[in-house]
């Protein structure tokens, strides 16, 4: 082929510009740490990144929901633990009142103590966490338990929220107030009636209900405990998913720095060689230089 100066210049310039482009790309990867800087760099990678971002955001939501739920459940559990202790105290007072060796005035004193313990239970049944009455079902803004005489009534409902804490997994955030407390307050009311009537037989009868109260409360607490345990497992599995998503993301978008640096080095060497070769081409003597 007949080679003219213009061909040599054109080829030199085009080689130079593609080398410059390559070095620019490698530099950008090194400075940003990312191999994708626009959609065109990897259209499918960007589409996958966008769904991974959505999954990450979903995991953040699940984690936050799991944290909330854990908090509500633990608040309920510690309230019920306290209730359990208070009922034990009431049972002890009741047992003392049931013995035939004490008199009416002593029973009246014991009844007073039972009432004070009962009021503490009532206050726990109206526990609030973050502004929510946790034993009120979905009627969260009104104290669920009210007392008239010795009769405690529950105005809450059984509508306890379940929330998503993992894809397809819902955890119930609490327990229904009437499930936890109705039997408790009933038994206490009976006990107090027996004590006020100064009737050891009636007291004995009322005390007979207490084993069931304890076991009922135990069952409620087991339910809560199971959910707290489930949440702990889920929280750690969310953490695992988060790490695996971060890894997937990194595989798609992060530049391999060592590779980029080697590539940059290679291009720079090629660029230097091209420039020095091109320099001698541009300054190349043609026949005119020789014939003068």
């Amino acid at each position: 082929m007949r080679v003219t100066q213009s061909i040599a210049y054109r080829n030199f310039l085009s080689d130079l510009s593609s080398l410059n482009e390559g070095s620019n790309k490698a530099l950008r990867e090194i400075s940003s740490g990312k191999k994708i800087s626009s959609l065109r760099d990897s259209p499918s990678g960007c589409a996958r990144l966008s769904s991974i971002n959505a999954l990450e955001s979903r995991i953040d939501q699940y984690t936050s929901n799991a944290g909330d739920s854990s908090y509500f459940l633990q608040t309920a559990d510690s309230a019920l633990n306290e209730v359990n202790n208070l009922i034990t105290g009431i049972h002890t007072r009741g047992s003392q009142a049931a013995t035939g060796t004490i008199g009416a005035s002593e029973r009246a004193v014991l009844a007073g103590e039972v009432r004070s313990l009962r009021d503490q239970i009532l206050s726990l049944a109206n526990s609030q966490a973050r502004g929510r009455y946790i034993f009120a079902g979905s009627l969260v803004s009104v104290a669920p338990f009210a007392i008239a005489g010795d009769t405690v009534t529950c105005a809450g409902n059984d509508d306890v929220n379940g929330v998503s804490v993992q894809q397809g997994v819902e955890v119930v955030q609490g327990v229904s107030g009437s499930e936890a407390f109705d039997a408790v307050f009933d038994a206490i009311e009976d006990l107090l009636a027996g004590m006020d009537a100064n009737d050891p037989g009636a007291i004995e009868n009322a005390l007979g209900r207490f084993p069931q109260v304890f076991s009922g409360l135990g069952q409620v607490r087991m339910k809560i405990g199971a959910n707290i345990g489930l949440l702990q497992n889920i929280q750690s599995s969310l953490e695992t998913s988060r790490i695996s998503l971060a890894e997937q993301k990194s595989a798609i978008e992060d530049a391999d720095l060592a590779e980029s640096v080697v590539e940059l080095k290679r291009i720079q060497t090629a660029l230097e060689a091209a420039i020095s070769a091109g320099g001698s081409l541009l300054g190349k003597r043609n026949l005119f230089d020789i014939i003068g």
Binding site: S50, S57, S64, G131, R132, N161, V163
Partner: peptide, 20 residues
């Protein structure tokens, strides 16, 4: 894309504390 998932995600969070 982030704004869309943030929007629907805010309902997911709301479901955990709807009265808050």
């Amino acid at each position: 894309a982030e704004a869309i998932s943030e929007f629907f995600g805010s309902f997911n969070r709301l479901s955990s504390t709807p009265e808050d």
